[in-house]
Design a protein around this nucleic acid. Structure first.
Length: 944
RNA sequence: GCCGAAGUGGUGGAAUUGGUAGACACGCUGGACUCAAAAUCCAGUGCCUUCAACAGCGUGCGGGUUCGAUUCCCGCCUUCGGUACCA
């Protein structure tokens, strides 16, 4: 009988659960190690084969560290609030709490199947009131603090109020959106409402106007993800950007620290680079331009004040506050048309369409403070309200986008930088000699920038400023399935916080998850819930990142009801030592978590400034995404077109609607298509398209008369495996067929953990064979067979070479090559006919982190004490590895021609002599030898 | 558009610091065992010319540095991730 995973795996799974093998205690004398996975969103499609890639890797690391004697914290939980559960509720009526629990149960079963060593007593679920109580609590702390830029930390709002009462705000150093100064007297006579308004400009959690994707036809705010090609993904209706009062988090206060602390982190450099660029620190000038004929000033930010004489026009964002004031009667129609057009485009589209920028002249002029010339003020879609001041001076000669805009609208271009002395310098390089620029003429760019800073200050028209691309985080969602805010509004609209003693504010039950007619959150339907003692509750909920920004702290003390975690637990576990997750979280989750952690650090609530010491990005297991083309239409009629009918020119007129890969014939290939059967499945699945027409090469059909030979060609792409693309492959069948050990090792064997690759099961037989061979080292025809003989030198050398390679490879996180090493070792032992217990028992300990089930079974059979997962990891003994000869490759002009085996310590001169005696070398010697290079221990190269 | 990554045989991948390109697997071909099949075992397998090679070519494309480049530099192409309300 061969190895039977169907017997062995369930047996150990149950035993491990019974004996609580993976329970972790906080209080211990051992050194700690915290291994963390990014917790999953429990999607309705279940765990897919991409999830375990990271989980298996972290499980291996956790088990490896345990065997090395660490007390390892390795928890798991669920990021359970989110949009998909709510969408599911809207379409099926199933309450998100129910569908989420079902999904979690399924995830749990799937995770258990894979034999992970999680301590489930520490499970975290972000939608659980006992958890989100603390999410709400942290929000209240953010609300009650401001950022003191002098002390460089968060301070209580009460301290700020005392300062206002004593001195006003002129001396306050703080991260603020406040630009007006007031004295103590002025403050003291302000109404409560006015005071609250001022404080709002300082709080780390504050309210301001933000923009949302509004879909009039659906009567709801859409996530960016629900908008495809400028129309709603559901139904293809127009979407516009609409201002709405929103909660925000002042992450920008932490920009400098988020940037500089990156140095301390053992993170992949590319990821740090992404965060760096996302924060986008730039030094430049804040300048004020007077407006011709009006008592107004336009504030701009530029990194190139030296090019001001090339500023032939100004551009402000179409949403800029000054637009109505600057627009003259003549230009009103044009400006409105432009604003209307821009409203329908997302920010990303606006940034992407560099060649199709849109703008309009406001009719007003700004005055260049250095030569008093009038500069026309335009609005333009390439300037974003949220970045900088939402206004720029455009220098078409020195900026690509300004140049394109100027060309499109025939605006003048004046060269101000002569780069002829700097061949190869691009527009982005701050190099060259200033020309056409009055007092700056002849200066080098960096010197001119310095001079401009001085001039601006003396003339009082501007000053040096550090600007960040990073923007404050929008924290409001007009949705049901999220954390409610612990916030009430009185009749005047003043904000009141709910006392901590009343937390959590639980999410009330609800049957109708659709938004209200005016686009408010579904919670606004619950009048009884909203009205409290003459005040009304905030009906928006918190965004997905709220719960995921601190969950790793909760695992340290998951069941505490007095604090988010006890100081003792926090002090013991400190920070996450090893964090693994997808690179898609590079600037979202990882930035927000760092921000929250720093805030909690400022409040002395956590012991470290950074949450994640070491981070590894696992790649993505990709799937095939199949979609069909829907012609965009205002009328709401749906016309689908076969891919072969669409010419590339008109591709922008179509929206791609993803279809379930199961409906598609020949999916993943260029011939992928929907046939009549596939169309039926599609309509059953997306009934809103039951009246759609389908345009194919074979003719135009409706769903019910789709031609039997007709094909609606689909678009096949490689991409994310995700419920939203309906292309999820589950691990369950694989685990059932091959066992968890095999599945685990196969996913690791696929390639480097960081690399993305499409899912493919072709090679799994190789791993399956390997496990059988490994088992059969001590089994023969189903009976246990091993000897107690002492291993010989050759066997010990093989064993210790393997220990060394495996240890090295785990340390540098190269798990695919670790498995190659196991294969080589087992092949070799088989060749040697070695079934000596002393060798194999070491190998069992070595492989235990990778294949925990088979290792445990073999450990038992070989007479091991307790669990192999508590056995110490083998240590290499160098004395078995000593080699006395070296094989050198002999290369001629860098190409290998022969080999030479010599004693390890032979001198290079002697080696050289031997090389020239080789017959294979001699035939190259009819040409003169220019040089002989001997790299000791490495190689020999002859240059002829 | 912008930021980041990847590209090596028929396939997944290896080559850790500039030093033998293709480890380990999958697949394929041939053979052994078998009435037969599966399983297992043995041999071969980058391409090309070839009786055969120790000949030539070969790490996305085009250049460069070097005795030597998958690895470093410059310029492209393609694909993937992110792009601030998917998670």
């Amino acid at each position: 009988m061969d190895y039977n995973h169907k017997e062995v795996e369930p047996k150990w799974r149950n035993l491990w659960a019974e004996t609580k093998l993976y329970k972790v205690e906080n209080d211990t004398s051992k050194p700690k190690f915290y291994v963390l996975d990014m917790f999953p969103y429990p999607s309705g499609a279940g765990l897919h084969v991409g999830h375990p890639l990271g989980y298996i890797a972290s499980d291996i690391i956790a088990r490896y560290k345990k065997q090395q004697g660490y007390n390892v914290l390795h928890p798991m939980g669920y990021d359970a609030f989110g949009l998909p559960a709510e969408q599911y509720a809207i379409s099926t009526g199933v309450h998100p709490a129910i569908s989420t629990d079902e999904n979690i149960a399924r995830y749990r079963a799937q995770l258990d199947n894979l034999g992970f060593n999680y301590d489930w007593s520490r499970q975290v679920k972000t939608c659980d009131p006992s958890y989100y109580k603390w999410t709400q609590w942290i929000f209240l702390q953010l609300f009650d603090h401001y950022y003191d830029t002098g002390l460089d930390k968060a301070m209580p709002i009460s301290a700020l109020i005392s300062k206002f009462e004593a001195d006003g705000n002129a001396q306050i150093q703080a991260a603020t959106s406040q630009s007006e100064y007031f004295t103590a007297d002025e403050w003291n006579v302000m109404t409560q409402t006015a005071k609250e308004e001022v404080l709002m400009n300082y709080r780390l959690a504050y309210r301001k106007v933000g923009f949302v994707n509004w879909c009039e036809a659906l009567g709801t705010v859409l996530a960016n993800d629900e908008v495809k090609d400028g129309v709603s993904e559901r139904g293809g209706f127009p979407v516009e950007r609409r201002p709405m009062m929103q909660w925000s988090l002042r992450i920008t206060a932490y920009a400098e620290r988020l940037l500089s602390n990156l140095d301390k982190l053992d993170w992949p450099e590319p990821l740090k680079a992404m965060q760096q660029n996302w924060i986008g620190r730039s030094e430049g000038a804040q300048m004020f331009f007077d407006i011709d004929g009006q008592d107004l000033q336009l504030e701009i930010f530029t990194t190139r004040p030296d090019t001001i004489f090339g500023a032939t026009y100004m551009v402000i964002a179409p949403e800029h506050d000054l637009v109505p004031l600057l627009t003259t009667l003549d230009q009103k129609a044009e400006i409105e048309a432009c604003i209307n057009y821009v409203k329908n485009k997302s920010e990303r589209e606006r940034m992407a369409e560099v060649k199709e920028m849109n703008g309009a002249f406001t009719g007003s002029y700004a005055i260049n403070p250095f030569n008093q010339e009038r500069i026309p003020i335009w609005i333009g879609d390439y300037v974003l309200k949220e970045y900088g001041t939402g206004a720029i001076m455009a220098v078409p000669s020195d900026d690509e986008r300004d140049m394109n805009f100027a060309k499109k609208y025939n605006l003048p271009i004046v060269d101000v930088v002569d780069k002829s002395n700097y061949p190869g310098a691009t527009l982005h390089d701050k190099l060259g000699i200033i020309i056409n620029s009055d007092f700056l003429n002849g200066m080098e760019v960096p010197a001119a920038i310095q001079l401009m800073f001085e001039k601006m200050e003396t003339q009082g028209v501007g000053s040096k400023k550090i600007n960040f691309k990073l923007r404050d985080a929008n924290y409001s969602r007009q949705r049901y399935w999220g954390e409610p805010f612990p916030i009430l509004y009185d009749a005047e609209g003043n904000v009141h916080t709910v006392p901590v003693s009343e937390l959590p504010i639980t999410l009330p039950p609800l049957d109708d998850f659709k938004p209200t007619i005016d686009g408010k959150s579904p919670l606004a339907r619950l009048e009884d819930w909203v009205e409290v003692d003459g005040m009304s509750r905030e009906t928006d909920t918190m965004p997905g990142f709220a719960g995921s920004s601190w969950y790793f702290l909760r695992y340290m003390d998951a069941n505490n009801d007095q604090a988010f975690a006890s100081p003792e637990a926090l002090n013991y576990w400190q920070e996450v030592d090893f964090y693994i997750g997808g690179a898609e979280h590079a600037v979202g989750h990882l930035m927000y978590s760092r921000f929250w952690h720093k805030f909690l650090f400022d409040l002395n609530l956590v012991p470290t400034e950074e949450p994640f010491k070491k981070l590894v990005n696992q790649g993505m297991i990709q799937g095939v995404i199949e979609s069909i083309y829907l012609k965009k239409s205002e009328s709401g009629d749906s016309h689908f077109y076969s891919e072969d009918l669409i010419d590339p020119q008109s591709i922008a007129d179509f929206a791609k609607i993803p279809v379930h890969v199961d409906f598609v014939s020949k999916y993943g290939s260029p011939e992928s298509h929907l046939n009549a059967n596939g169309i039926q499945q599609f309509i059953a699945w997306r009934p809103e398209f039951h009246n759609a027409t389908f345009h194919t090469k074979e003719g135009i059909f409706h769903a019910n008369d789709f031609g039997s030979s007709a094909k609606l060609l689909t678009k096949s792409e490689v991409g994310k495996m995700s419920k939203r693309y309906f292309n999820v492959v589950n691990p369950d069948d694989m685990v059932e067929k091959y066992g968890a050990d095999c599945f685990r090792m196969y996913e690791m064997f696929l390639g480097p953990i960081e690399q993305s690759k499409p899912w493919d099961t072709k090679g799994i037989d190789g791993v399956s064979k390997f496990l059988r061979k490994f088992w059969n080292l001590i089994h023969n025809e189903g009976t246990l067979q091993f000897t107690e003989e002492t291993p010989n030198d050759q066997e010990l050398k093989l064993l210790h070479t393997t220990i060394k390679k495996v240890t090295d490879d785990i340390e540098r996180f190269s798990l695919n090559t670790t498995i190659s090493n196991f294969m080589i070792c087992v092949n070799e032992l088989k060749r040697m006919n070695c079934n000596k217990k002393a060798v194999i028992v070491e190998l069992v300990k070595l492989i235990a982190p990778f294949a925990p089930f088979i290792a445990e079974e073999m450990w038992l059979q070989l007479g091991g004490e307790g669990s192999v997962h508590h056995a110490s990891f083998p240590k290499v003994e160098e004395k078995y590895l000593i080699e006395d000869t070296v094989v050198y490759p002999i290369c001629v002009n860098g190409k290998k021609r022969d080999e030479l085996e010599v004693a390890k310590d032979m001198a290079p001169q002697e080696i050289e002599k031997l090389v020239f005696e080789k017959a294979s070398v001699k035939k190259w010697l009819d040409q003169p030898v220019k040089k002989v290079i001997v790299v000791p221990g490495r190689m020999i190269n002859l240059v002829v």
